[in-house]
């Protein structure tokens, strides 16, 4: 009995044993947590390495400035790169104003009633609709009902539907974070509601909205499925008309009607071919695509970091 009281030389008491065991399993779980993060991180690294090892030799100026070609070594991504940029332009030009408008209405104007609940549920559900369904909607509505064809306009509008919920949610969160003292101060100075919203709320929310918009666009630029369903071409050996013309009226919208291809579609086309040379092309296109999305994502992450650091209410 006396020996069990001296802690150093004897076996541990049941309580000490239990503490030790529980601590050990707790530490084991922490290791499991680190391991899980490592799996995610390793996947990311493996993905980037695989792309670079296979695609880096192909990644040169010639690849960026050539059109698609049946000969793998001559093919490039010029048409896809230009197509992606133009489609994003249409997407941003439509989704951003509508999304911000919707977000403002839902936060500042709407009366709380059944109708507001309906719109609320709608926005959350739209964010969860699979992207390919938007493609089917575009196929039936834009291509066959509005007769817009397989054009840059159709593609831009399709992706705008996809980005819209993201912009709305970002706008609402940004507006909600602004303290009501700011609204009251604006009203106290005699501002009308729209003056308060557009001259005070919107500028303050701008940074956060911009972050959301960039994240939404970075998702849209990598979207493939909805554009496959509307029938994007993969073999395009010309550029659409330039939006800026040398003659009167200097701005042309002919490019909106042009057939197009985009980076993810070009990559999908190359991946699905059996020849290994085209898979090299796919990897190179993947590097370009991944760099674009990562760049947009890091801008967004940096912006958010700066805003969180500087903004103190």
């Amino acid at each position: 009995m006396a020996t069990s009281l001296s802690p150093s030389s004897t076996p541990l008491s049941p309580i000490q044993l239990s503490v030790l065991q529980r601590k050990r399993s707790s530490n084991l779980f922490a290791v499991a947590g680190i391991f899980s993060i490592a799996i995610a991180l390793m996947t990311l690294i493996a993905l980037v390495l695989q792309l670079f090892i296979q695609g880096f030799p192909k990644l040169n100026w010639q690849f960026l400035t050539s059109f698609a070609d049946p000969e793998a070594s001559l093919a490039g991504v010029l048409a896809a790169l230009v197509g992606s940029c133009l489609v994003m332009l249409v997407t941003a030009a439509t989704a951003v104003p509508v999304g911000i408008g919707a977000g403002l209405y839902l936060e500042e104007y709407i009366a709380r009633n059944k109708f507001s609940a309906l719109i609320e549920i709608n926005v959350t559900n739209l964010a969860g609709v699979p992207s390919i369904v938007y493609g089917l909607l575009a196929l039936g509505l834009f291509k066959y009902y509005f007769n817009l064809g397989e054009s840059i306009l159709t593609a831009g509008l399709t992706l705008a539907l996809l980005v819209l919920p993201v912009v709305i949610v970002a706008t609402r969160e940004a507006i909600r974070a602004i303290p009501s003292s700011l609204r009251e101060a604006a009203y106290a100075m005699g501002a009308s509601k729209s003056q308060m919203v557009f001259d005070h709320l919107l500028p303050y929310a701008f940074g956060n909205i911009l972050t959301g918009v960039i994240i939404g666009l970075s998702r849209a630029i990598g979207e493939t499925a909805p554009l496959v369903t509307i029938g994007a071409l993969t073999f395009i050996a010309f550029l659409p008309d330039s939006p800026i013309q040398s003659g009167f009226p200097f701005i042309s919208f002919e490019w909106l009607k042009a057939p197009f291809t985009v980076l993810p579609i070009q990559m999908f086309n190359w991946v699905s071919r059996p020849e290994p040379e085209f898979q090299v092309n796919a990897a190179a296109a993947g590097i370009v695509l991944l760099s674009l999305t990562l760049m947009m994502n890091s801008i967004a992450i940096y912006l958010r970091y700066r805003i969180q650091k500087n903004l103190k209410w």
């Binding site: 695989q50 792309l51 970075s218 979207e223 999908f268 991946v271 796919a282 993947g286 991944l290």
Partner: peptide, 24 residues
């Protein structure tokens, strides 16, 4: 540090994931 890395993982285009699944 971990959260932005996870966000990047979420931001990888799905067609790139498809390529990764097929060829790696």
């Amino acid at each position: 540090w971990v959260k932005p890395i996870l966000e990047i993982l979420a931001g990888v285009p799905t067609v790139v994931y498809g390529y990764f699944a097929l060829l790696f």
